[in-house]
Nucleic acid binder design. Sequence first.
DNA 1: CTCCATACTAAGCGGTTGCTTAGGCGTAAG
DNA 2: CTTACGCCTAAGCAACCGCTTAGTATGGAG
Lengths: 208, 208
Amino acid sequence: MTSSRDEFALLDETWSSVEPPAARRMLIAAAAAFSVRGYHATTTRDIAAQAGMSPAAVYIHYRSKEELLFQISRVGHATSLSVLTAVSDADPVVRLTSAVRAFASWHAEFHTTARVVQYELTALTPEHLAEVVVLRRRIEAAVREMISAGVDAGAFDVPDVRGATLAVLSLCIDVARWYQPSGRRTPEQIGDLYADLVLRMLGAPTTP
Amino acid sequence: MTSSRDEFALLDETWSSVEPPAARRMLIAAAAAFSVRGYHATTTRDIAAQAGMSPAAVYIHYRSKEELLFQISRVGHATSLSVLTAVSDADPVVRLTSAVRAFASWHAEFHTTARVVQYELTALTPEHLAEVVVLRRRIEAAVREMISAGVDAGAFDVPDVRGATLAVLSLCIDVARWYQPSGRRTPEQIGDLYADLVLRMLGAPTTP
DNA sequence: CTCCATACTAAGCGGTTGCTTAGGCGTAAG
DNA sequence: CTTACGCCTAAGCAACCGCTTAGTATGGAG
């Protein structure tokens, strides 16, 4: 299965810094399983089997199944935040365009991680959720500031900045739900499409 | 808890045609639980307790826990399709505007049902999923046709109709994920906001 | 070689799961 | 009064869950 191998190669890219290798294999197996079946439908035996180890091996590297989820969610949120804020162009229009392109295409390319990040929040303990919510607020603030900067520069025509922020974020995040690697669009094409749609939504002068 | 009573009143509105009353109470309890905790994290004992009955009572009215989910998903999809296609205005711009307003605000007001509809598809059996996918395709086709009609009438400026359809649907559906009754926007305000944003996205001349 | 820490497995424990069985209770027809 | 039927519960079964325990293999330090 080629697509399955690609899948795991991409997950490996995201989690390459996790050591030791057995702990990384567990995380990758858990992310793949949580993404497809959901946290509650995934058993620790599933994860261990996918990682090629016994069920008890999970608990050598992680305190609980929930801690596995938390690590995926924490690193996933941090990664998506850094993807969003990596652009530092002076022009607010260019900055937002690049940010949306990168953020949307990340949710496609890394949809396995992104699905866990976006749709398994309710399975986290209150303490872990609180930690992740801090990152989510920073993601929202980053988008809002980029839109605000464009409005202040006279580049955008937005009557409701909070509402526009909500919509832009919502649009990008939902990519993780519907994206399929077998679909007709590549992550890059999705990024380009969404960057254009967002500029229109924000009333930026059309660049022909 | 006032908000909890409102919650159940709204669910009652959606499921009022289900008979007998005990079966309806089960459906409502299941929808509320699936929406908050997810299908797999909800036990048949949870559902029965919320409906004020014994665990075995579930199986008087439904063959399995999955059939409970299927009924919620099937009726929920059918309802959202009829909300989307209820508008029959001749003008394609008015038609799409009204449809988006209604579809987006439905995902807010009935977010409990909408969450089950949008996020628990993977828990359905293959047969039940296939039945629901037919409805999903009709929902997508309805939006695509409305956008196409606007393009044909020269009212929209859309380079990629399929892409625009994807984005419009995605935007509305994701309302179910982030909406909170305690939030700062009412379902109607969300509908108005989204109708405006979608018109901008589709390059419709701004109506001041 | 001994010692010990690390990484792992086989086996299993207590608790929970979806669902079944056997039977009770009320109502209405015969 | 008897019978039959629809709706419900008490009790429980087999399977499965997250996680623990006891023990094994490995490899490097002294």
